[in-house]
Amino acid sequence: MPGNALAALPLPDGRRLAVSQGEQELALRLDGQPLLRVRRLADGRLQPLELPLAEQAEALWLLAYCCFAGDPDRQALRLALAEVDPALRASGLLLGEGEDLRIERELFWQLPGPFLRAPASAGYPQQLVMHASGRRHPRRPPKPVGEVYRRFDARLGAWMSLRTLDIEADLPRFNRWQNSARVAAFWQEQGDLEQHRRYLEALAADPRVLTLIGCLDDEPFAYYEAYWAKEDRIAPFYQAGDYDRGIHMLVGEEHHRGPHKVAAWLGALSHYLLLDEPRTQRVVAEPRADNARMIQHLQAQGYHKAKEFDFPHKRAALMVLPREVFFDRCALA
């Protein structure tokens, strides 16, 4: 664990993980109570001390979270364990045998852990149905309600969370955001409260779209639409997979703009969609082709520009994030 690792890390369930380090050992405390002592071995492995088998799963997950959140460049955690809880291998948290036991960053961030806060789409049985467009697609699960994702962003030092939009509570801010000149230039959805109520009610009734509010330290600052691409207008323009998701996004609060915050919320939004449904192999976006700044932000998070194409209302850039690319050298912290 590097010298600049985190000293404390809040967890989404309200608990707090604290870390203290010496030259040869580090210690973890959970809500002030001792959790785990770890010795650094000369070969770089970490050796948990006096860790009962029954407590391995939680303690090693928390150790990995602290190490990976504190050092986004760290790709693996090598461990020295005398015995292993088989559930750790079954979950994908732990790989290897003997002196090659390790937790890999790429797999760790694919485990929902406490980050996923609502019932996931994962495991919903597949049944192909026909869309009005003539395209077959899987029947979509019921939409979640309330908070769906929460994670403390160690770089920002702030909570990044996503919750579903509540029309009664969020309509005034949605109306204000859409009528700002900066947002209107790209969304072109200016209107009064009643127009925006109808807009949001139509999306609420559409199983294709999930409307989300992004929050930093629980302050609403952004609006997102996450849609199933197979049923969307984008489907004719690329070979959409059954579980591909797409995103529309806007930052409504001016004081939450900036590239460092885009990295936090775009990473969180992409992470949520990939956690929600493991069958999702791609997340796509279609910003205006001349929106160079947004395209650069997407590329910084692993999206690539597949092509440009023409919607009736705009020339768009097809931006594609493969699941493998997001989790390979995952930049979450």
Rank of each mutant, 00 (worst) to 15 (best):
P2T: 14
A8H: 15
D13F: 07
R16T: 05
L17N: 00
L28F: 11
D31Q: 11
L35A: 08
D43L: 04
L60T: 05
C66D: 05
G70Y: 01
P72V: 06
D73C: 08
Q75G: 09
L77P: 11
R78E: 15
A82I: 08
P86A: 03
L93R: 09
G96P: 00
G98S: 11
I103G: 00
W109A: 08
Q110E: 14
Q110Y: 01
Q110P: 04
P112H: 14
G113H: 14
A118E: 00
A122C: 07
Y124M: 05
Y124C: 10
V129G: 09
S133F: 06
H137V: 03
K143Y: 02
P144T: 10
G146L: 00
R150M: 05
S161M: 09
A169Q: 15
R173D: 00
Q178R: 11
A185P: 10
Y199H: 10
A202P: 02
D206M: 11
L212S: 04
L216R: 11
W228K: 13
D232S: 15
A240F: 05
D242A: 11
E253H: 12
G258P: 06
A263C: 02
W265G: 14
L266H: 13
S270I: 00
L274M: 13
R279V: 03
T280G: 09
E286A: 01
H297C: 08
A300I: 04
A300C: 03
K305W: 03
K307M: 13
F309D: 12
F309T: 03
F311P: 14
L318G: 12
V320A: 06
P322G: 06
